[in-house]
């Protein structure tokens, strides 16, 4: 039982990263209909940025947690204005290629400056111990990651449901034409929403720095699973992406333990789930079929 609880907790922590990344992808897709392939690269920039702030400027983790999302959010907005925006009217494939190319450029820029070897980044001293939950103990930093990520997800959900911006975003996501017809300027929210999605990826990157290998390629492996998460949750569905993020984290953790004798199965579990969901509900668990044009 203790083992089960421990693994469940662990799955949720891992799921927190999926949820944050998938959430960013979902708001961007919802608003812009752009599948942001560069999401993993911004996650990497968040972690690398935290390292640079600490190692070269002496800025601690807590400040990095604020600074990096803001910096990357602004960068994201600039990229949206400069590139993504111009391709918005064309086939979605163009923005797909653009963000993919962007990933390669960002990775190689970081590589040329910091090399490929992973870079050390220690967790903040305040979070170095472990928390005793009675039945088991768990590293404090991981507990913090989980609490923080849940708070962010709830915060974003509240923003979307209770603020005017949120209502516009939701309306524009579900019925862009109709929203415009009501005289709402959807266009002016496109850039900030893109920046916001990127900021979430950066935030996840900063959170990852103390517990994962920080290197230029750290985002490229993770992003594959995150795309599966987004597809399972339903492209563009805010709630779906968060729920699927935590859900996949749990399934992976349980899979590794309870399917230990079938490593091939436990390693591909995410994609098996994805295939099953797509057969049963092609739009994802919480996605809606696109309204007929």
């Amino acid at each position: 039982m203790t083992g089960f609880l421990q693994h469940t907790f662990d799955g949720l922590v891992n799921g927190a990263f999926y949820a944050l990344l998938a959430l960013g992808l979902a708001v961007i897709f919802g608003m812009l209909r752009v599948v942001n392939f560069a999401h993993g690269a911004f996650y990497m920039l968040g972690a690398m940025g935290a390292y640079v702030l600490l190692a070269e400027l002496g800025v601690p983790f807590w400040w990095a947690l604020v600074i990096m999302p803001v910096v990357l959010g602004v960068l994201g907005m600039a990229l949206e204005r400069a590139f993504v925006h111009r391709l918005a009217q064309l086939d979605p494939l163009y923005n797909f290629l653009l963000t993919f190319g962007l990933t390669l450029i960002l990775q190689d820029l970081v590589k040329s400056r910091y090399g490929v070897q992973s870079i050390p980044y220690a967790p903040p001293a305040e979070l170095n111990g472990s928390v005793d939950f009675g039945l088991f103990d768990f590293p404090t930093y991981r507990v913090f990651v989980l609490v923080f990520a849940v708070a962010i997800c709830v915060g974003v959900w509240w923003l979307l449901t209770h603020s005017r911006v949120g209502m516009v975003v939701r309306a524009a996501t579900e019925r862009p034409e109709l929203t415009r017809a009501f005289g709402i300027n959807v266009g002016r929210w496109v850039t900030p929403v893109f920046g916001f999605g990127i900021a979430l990826a950066g935030l996840a990157g900063v959170l990852a720095a103390p517990m994962r290998a920080v290197n230029p390629l750290m985002g490229s492996d993770l992003i594959i699973v995150v795309f599966a998460v987004v597809v399972i949750g339903g492209l563009g569905s805010i709630f779906g992406s968060v729920a699927a993020g935590f859900g996949i984290g749990l399934i992976q953790a349980w899979g590794v333990v309870y399917l230990a004798d079938w490593p091939i199965l436990s390693q591909t579990l995410v994609f098996i789930v994805m295939a099953a969901v797509l057969m049963w509900r092609p739009a994802g668990l919480f996605g809606r079929e696109e309204a007929p044009a």
């Binding site: 693994h7 662990d10 799955g11 991981r142 492996d221 953790a253 590794v256 333990v257």
Partner: peptide, 12 residues
């Protein structure tokens, strides 16, 4: 492979 989360194995 590659893998960024080994915690399940470490907990086990």
């Amino acid at each position: 492979f590659p893998n960024d989360n080994f915690s399940t194995f470490l907990l086990k």
